[in-house]
Amino acid sequence: MPNRDEDRHQQFLRAFTTHEPAVRAFVRRLVPSRADADDVLQEVAIVLWTKFDEFRDSGDFRAWACGIARFKVLSWLRDKGRDRLTLDSDVVELIAVDSIRHEPHLQRQRDALETCFEKVPSAERELLARAYQPDTKIHDVAANSGRSVGGFYQWLYRMRQMLLECVQRVLAGESLS
């Protein structure tokens, strides 16, 4: 039944593409780095596809995917945790539970970031974007910007704090109107 396979495949890709940013963000909160999140998400994606037949169309894809991602993170922590500086697994569980509970709020924060990002002066925005490209070497970005590595991390902290405050302000404003 190639047609049904095709449809199923399309359904999966549509659902996965729609929810991938949320699942990625969920995994990111549980592992030390964005690169670790990429590794885990790769495995999660394959499990999601192989188990997609068990997923009911009426179900919540995001919740289902986050459930699978949670298990994958825990097994990743067991395998890789010894070589990496990770949070304790009971703490990771707590974060996972809180994350799922607050996902609608976190989604709004992610959406609001786009607005806040646009408000950053263009030179700093570009620098920030370079620092966040996949596989970027912070040393190189720092050197290009004329800062020391330590100074660059300090600058990154400030930018993130500023953006987080902006995001919180945007959402506070929304809830008033």
Binding site: A25, S122, A131
Partner: peptide, 25 residues
Amino acid sequence: RQWFIELLNLDSALAAVALGSIAGM
């Protein structure tokens, strides 16, 4: 924990936004 979650959430969102935009626009 809540603050930690929000900051890491921002980290993901920033990575996503950065992918689509790296220059002065």
